[in-house]
């Protein structure tokens, strides 16, 4: 996944076991690419001493409204997190 900045992406809604660096509270949520980082070795394999391929890492910006819905303290505040490429899929703007 190599996307232009500000593109809309959705965090995949999967629940694999193991050392995962994608917080559950962001799974299924839509945000915009804030910047591209990396590549970095896949931490899900690195943690177990396995051969870890390099992946792009993206900083994704979510609105608090997207993350928390009506429970958001202030809908326009934002939450930025680093998400690995294999956790993201392109999506339409909400």
């Amino acid at each position: 996944m190599a996307e232009a900045l500000s593109s809309w992406v959705r965090v995949r809604e999967m629940m694999p076991p193991g050392h995962v660096r994608t917080p559950s509270y962001l799974r299924g949520k839509r945000g915009q690419l804030e910047r591209t980082l990396g590549p970095f070795h896949n931490p899900e394999k690195l943690a177990y001493g396995l051969e870890a391929e390099k992946l792009s890492l993206y900083r994704v910006r979510f609105s608090m409204a997207e993350v928390w819905g009506d429970a958001a303290e202030n809908p326009d505040d934002t939450l930025d997190a680093e998400i690995y490429a294999h956790w993201l899929e392109p999506c339409d703007a909400p």
Binding site: P23, L79, D80, A81, E82, Y84
Partner: peptide, 15 residues
Amino acid sequence: PDGMTVRVHDSTADM
């Protein structure tokens, strides 16, 4: 103030 945007940064990976 309400007019100020709060940006929370969750250090989830390598940064």
